[in-house]
Design a protein around this nucleic acid. Sequence first.
DNA 1: GCAATATGCTTGACTATTCAAGTAGTTATC
DNA 2: GATAACTACTTGAATAGTCAAGCATATTGC
Lengths: 146, 146
Amino acid sequence: MTSINDPLKLILNINAAQGVLQKKMDAALASHGITLTDFTIFLQLSLANEEKMRRVDLAEKVGLTASGITRVLSPLEKLGLVRREAHSRDARVSYVKLAPAGKRILNESIQSAQSSAAELLATYRSTKITELNKVLFRIGGENTIP
Amino acid sequence: MTSINDPLKLILNINAAQGVLQKKMDAALASHGITLTDFTIFLQLSLANEEKMRRVDLAEKVGLTASGITRVLSPLEKLGLVRREAHSRDARVSYVKLAPAGKRILNESIQSAQSSAAELLATYRSTKITELNKVLFRIGGENTIP
DNA sequence: GCAATATGCTTGACTATTCAAGTAGTTATC
DNA sequence: GATAACTACTTGAATAGTCAAGCATATTGC
């Protein structure tokens, strides 16, 4: 049939690769009781200024909607992994902050995540990985890890 | 904090980029009444031998489970975009085949998809895209488009 | 040739997420 | 300083998908 142009192929292949990788990362993180989404949330919180973020900003950062973040965070709050903090001047916003238990889990799971990732990509030269990262950084914008 | 190794960064960034791209592609395809998943299914069917696939194989190819493919296909069958075909010697399998209406939609939507993709990736040299594709091809395996 | 096992598919119950609407609080305008 | 418009967050209903179980058919090993 019509042959597919390279940009479309790239998008379809990013999609396919993401599906494969997400399954593997979820499996690797399951022993810590978290998903890749949870992990990403913890990581973004740990990188944020004062280690806290407004819920809308966190949602944006991890690619969810405001309501999505409410639902994902709710069990994490109940488990005591993150907690709420009020904004001093705006009563509408509630910050999300990593609780000590959440930090602990992040530190443990980051080890698993890094070694799984290294294993999954073991066959690639690190220069290639760095370069690939640069491209994705521009595509993913704000949501990427620099 | 602990700095993150490059393989993990790459995986997180593929994840982020995929989220961004999927939203844009879904928006571009919405005018044809299909999602990126539907589009991928149509495309894989059109590339398949005799333009038909067993449901399990299609599921595998597009990164869904067998039950997932049943649910996604069911409305597409009702709309007459794909149809079932029996296997001559194995009564368990039912092939999925693009119906003429499905082919028409694929041909129309492939135009939108290609031009959106080209636009989204307009700032990248095509050699870079080709190279990136090679890497993803190895990560995504069977599920990628060669 | 028949029991055991494996395969292909569907279905009910669940999970993750979205969207639309609602509530509460804030900012701007006149 | 009242009102309108906007923003942050939550919630009910819906959608896309998973997982576990079940049914029908095929294959294998005795």
